[in-house]
Write a protein that binds this DNA or RNA. Structure first.
Lengths: 204, 204
DNA sequence: GTCTATACTCAGATAGAC
DNA sequence: GTCTATCTGAGTATAGAC
C-alpha cells in the first residue's frame, strides 16, 4: 500500500503529506481524519500543510486529482499492450480485479468517493477520465464491429458494471470464492452479451 | 420526497426527527449535518433527540435500519405481483429505475451509504436484505430453470450490476437520454445473457 | 519555507428545570 | 418526557518566530 503510487510533485513535503492523506483517508475517511492526524502521520507541520494546500478541502482535491491521473495512466498502459477490443476488455477487467486485490481499501475509496459526505464539490469520478476511458474502448469496439451495434452506455454498463458490482460484492465480503475465481466466466458472459456474433465466431 | 416513507414508530417525535434526518443526511450528508441543524429542522429539542437515540450515530443507525426495512417491504410487494423470474426481474428493475427518478438523492444516498465516511459501523448495505433478495430471485430462477446454470453471483452481477451502474451514470448526469430510455434494451440484453435459452425460446 | 503556539468556532453531549 | 442552558473538547485555521 504505502508506495502504491508515487506522487510526483516538485516538493518532497507535498508528497509526504499527500501520501499520508491517501493512507488516512482510505483508512478512516475524510471526515474522521483531522489535520493533527495528518501532522503526526506525515511529520509535516500544520502551517506547512496549509501553506501548500490552502485548506483541508484543497488537500483532498489535490489528492483526488493525482489519484485519478494515476489510474488513467495505468489504464492507458494496459490498453496499449492489447490490440483488439476483446483483449483490451479482458485486460482492463484483470487490471481492475488485481488492483482490488492489491489495494482493497483504495478501491473501496475510489468506488465510494462521491457524494457530499466525502469530498464536497469534487466532480464525480464516474464522469472522470478513468471511467470515461472504459466507454471509449467499447465505442472503438463498436466502430471496428467487434461489439455489436447498441447503445454504447448500455454496453458499458453490461461489460464493466457487472464487474464493478462483483468487485463491490468482494469488498463487502459477500463472495464465497476468491474474486479471481469469478472473472473468467463473468467476462466471457458479459462479452458475449455485447459482442458482434459474426466477428466472435470468426475469431474462433 | 417529504413523505417518501412513513416512518412507523410509536412516538411522533421520533418520526419527526427521523424524517428530518433523512432529509438532511440525503441533502448535506451525515457529517455536514449537526445536531443543531436537526433541532431546527425537526422542531424537536437537543435533549429529546439524545434521550431517544442515544447519540448521533444511534440516530443514523435507526434511520438506516428503517430505510432498509422499507426498501425490503417494497421489493417484496413488487415480486409478489409477478409469477416468473423474468417478470420479477423486469419489475424489480422498473422499481429501481422509478425509485431513482422519484428520489434521486435518496437513491444516491443508498448506493453510497457505506464506508467509514458515512455511517461508521453500519453493516454494508450490499449484504443487507434489499440486496440479498435480488440474489434470491436469481437463485429461484435457476431452480426453475428459467436462468441457465451458472454461478449465481455472476448472474446477479450481470442482471442487476449493469442496471445499478446505469442508474449511477444517470445520477452522475452522464447519460444523454432519460434513464427510462435505456431500460428495455438493457434488461433485454442482460436477461438474454443469463436466461436458459430453451426456456426462453419456449416462452415466445 | 517551515515550525510552534495559539485563537476561535462550533459540534456533540449533559444537567437539570419544568 | 420535553425543553433550555451550558459545558467540554476537538478541529480548522492563523500569526508570527525562526
Amino acid at each position: 500500500m504505502q508506495n502504491f503510487f508515487q506522487i510526483d510533485t516538485g516538493s518532497p513535503l507535498k508528497t509526504k503529506v499527500l501520501t499520508s492523506a491517501l493512507c488516512l483517508f482510505v483508512e478512516k475517511g475524510y471526515y474522521n481524519t483531522s489535520i493533527p492526524d495528518l501532522v503526526q502521520h506525515s511529520g509535516v507541520s500544520t502551517g506547512t500543510i496549509y501553506k501548500h494546500f490552502g485548506d483541508k478541502q484543497g488537500l483532498a482535491n489535490s489528492l483526488m486529482e493525482l489519484l485519478v491521473e494515476e489510474l488513467y495512466r495505468q489504464e492507458l498502459a494496459v490498453i496499449a499492450a492489447q490490440d483488439t477490443t476483446q483483449a483490451r476488455y479482458r485486460a482492463l477487467v484483470m487490471w481492475i480485479v488485481e488492483f482490488s486485490l492489491d489495494y482493497p481499501e483504495v478501491m473501496s475509496f475510489i468506488l465510494y468517493a462521491r457524494h457530499k459526505n466525502y469530498l464536497p464539490n469534487f466532480s464525480h469520478i464516474c464522469s472522470s477520465k478513468p471511467f470515461m476511458i472504459l466507454r471509449d474502448i467499447i465505442q472503438q469496439g463498436m466502430a471496428s464491429q467487434e461489439v455489436r451495434p447498441m447503445d454504447v452506455m448500455i454496453a458499458v454498463s453490461l461489460a464493466f458494471g457487472s464487474v464493478l458490482r462483483m468487485v463491490q460484492l468482494h469488498l463487502d465480503g459477500v463472495l464465497e470464492k476468491p474474486l479471481m475465481a469469478y472473472v473468467d466466466e463473468l467476462t466471457e458472459t458479459a462479452w458475449c452479451a455485447i459482442a458482434n456474433p459474426h466477428k466472435t465466431i470468426v475469431k474462433q
